[in-house]
Amino acid sequence: MIVAEQKPLSEIKYLISPYKQILVLGCGTCMTVCGAGGEREVSFLSQALQLEQSMNSVSWQGFQEYTVKRQCSNEFLDVISDIVTTIDCILSVGCGAGVQTLARRFPDMPVLPGVNTSLLGMEQQPGIWDECCVACGECRLGDTAGICAYTRCAKGILNGPCAGNKNGKCEVNHDIDCAWVMIYKRLDRLGQLDKMRHYYSMRNFKVTPRQIGLIQKPDLAGESDG
């Protein structure tokens, strides 16, 4: 799941300072679950800003609140198209993908991020998320016992532990388990330690912004301009 944290109120105030009518827009999927930008957080944030408005001299005059099912899908943004004609900016508490989908969908509307999109995480305990995936596009979890070396090793080492781990903990943070010790233990438990002996070659970092689709793109090669 995508996990985010709300930006400090001072930064949000700075971001919206040039605008008068503001739509605080939540997202009903990941941001709702991680508690950074669902309906509840939209309400809290809106109230906090209105409180600020009542106490200090600020430019903004009105807030509207809305939470769409999913900010990163165009189809779920149609419902706000009427609201958008009545505002000066969108303060999105969706993830970075949500903010950018809004910016593309509403080209004349400033869209501001109300959260810092932090990681792709798994729940360690309620409210605490561990980063576990960097969406690298080259998944090797089948070789590493379901524990991502690239994400969870502080150095992203693919061929085994560095010398820095101590008592099974990472040299970067002694509270975090060394990814490679975890991988080793679990491969051992699964009877698959031979996988650790494989050489994992240099990664393909695919620097170009990536695009994937379930629908086959049309082959444009043979099409004429006319």
Partner: peptide
């Protein structure tokens, strides 16, 4: 060598590269 982590040094905000680990470097 793979190298110590950036966090242990004096430029903690720098981008850690780690394009290659020590084994990959030997292969290179």
């Amino acid at each position: 060598l793979t190298g110590d982590s950036i966090n242990s040094g004096d430029h903690k905000d720098a981008k850690p590269v780690f394009d290659l680990d020590s084994v990959q470097m030997l292969h290179m």
